[in-house]
Design a protein around this nucleic acid. Structure first.
Lengths: 205, 205
DNA sequence: GCGCTATACGAACGTTCGTGCTATTTACGC
DNA sequence: GCGTAAATAGCACGAACGTTCGTATAGCGC
């Protein structure tokens, strides 16, 4: 009996290795700054050899995003959604995102970087990013709905607004950490999150 | 008596015109995406003629940022700081920022776009952006301190945290508007802002 | 009106980008 | 073990980038 990773064709393995490296690199330099030449050098492979795996740069960018999504689903979304409590899921989404973006991705959140790069660049990549953003807000909003149904959150809570505010806190954290290197970025994000939770919870007099 | 804009050397006028156009273009394509060739074409001027005004692309980028700062100071910061009330200043900063970024800048806030582009690109431009970010948070925090002194905001309010949260709302608005074209972006930002104000204000039982 | 200087131009530079083509190597079923 | 197909390398391309250089032109003090 052999490990399935060994029976898998060689090309698939190198393609996956390329995407793993490309994902980390893209978090630093962006999807547009991600260049086939430097990626090939980093992988110690020829430019044309790497190129053949994707056929176009746009296809590479899409594949990188999908790789990032797979990571994000496995490390942030799925563990959170497994939790029975809605409040615990919200908490896990927050903690998971902070940890994932600051500890597992070399240059922070790829999706935020890519969103800024492509918000004025129509095409398949942009469409993909928009779709991902909607899905992400739905995941957060869905957890809020569960928390509301369980009685932990206010009955009149607007889950779309909650998800929007939740996401904005993450944007603030990302910028505080990446641009100004604020050592208190995590603390500030945590305080903002607690304020959001307090407002969403049923009032405790 | 002649208008000062006519006595000013010709070169200064074209330089200013270039920067005006470059600022709008940079809000769309970013400071890195801003290219001397396309900018020259847009201005109906030669590439080398335009280049001579700045000497390097980095100098152009810095000049564009300074142009953006001048706009931002004139249209957002100064009017707000003239208000006698701290709360009114906070409100004016918020409204002013929303209006400025969505109505006066073709591609949204230049500083947010540039921050993402340069957060991993050390150099003079990045340093400039970090400094601007600090100054901006200090302006917001200063207005909060005034509101606290006037008794409108809680005595134990952390103005740095307030400024951080304030800024995060703007980041959320910018992304909602630019990436997903959310028609409710302004409404959501307003709701988030009201929640921030409510939390900062002295409790009304 | 002359002459100096600021301003703009056109061409070319060396790089780097993404992307084709064609060979050569490598892996794997039979 | 051999043959075929997949995988990679090598090389070249056209375009675009920032930048430099020599030259022409326009504006303005005198």
């Amino acid at each position: 009996m052999v490990s399935p990773t060994l029976t898998r064709p060689r090309g698939d393995r190198t393609r996956q290795a390329i995407l793993e490296e490309a994902l980390q690199l893209a978090t630093v330099v962006g999807l547009h700054g991600l260049t086939i030449g430097t990626l090939a050098t980093r992988m110690e492979i020829s430019k044309s050899g790497l190129f053949a795996h994707f056929g176009s740069k746009e296809a590479l960018q899409q594949a990188v995003i999908e790789t990032g999504v797979a990571h994000f689903m496995a490390r942030v979304i799925r563990p959170a959604l497994l939790l029975p409590s809605g409040v615990a899921a919200v908490r896990a989404l927050f903690d998971g995102w902070i940890h994932w973006s600051s500890e597992e991705m070399a240059g922070g959140c790829l999706f935020i970087t890519a969103a800024v790069e492509f918000d004025d660049r129509p095409g398949a990549v942009r469409d993909q990013l928009v779709e991902l953003h909607h899905q992400w807000l739905e995941v957060v909003g869905g957890a809020a709905v569960r928390a509301r149904a369980s009685g932990a959150f206010r009955a009149d809570l607007d889950e779309a607004q909650f998800a929007h505010d939740f996401h904005a806190i993450l944007l603030g954290f990302n910028q505080a950490r990446r641009l100004v290197n604020d050592p208190d970025a995590k603390t500030k994000a945590e305080r903002a999150f607690q304020r959001l939770l307090r407002d969403a919870s049923v009032s405790s007099p």
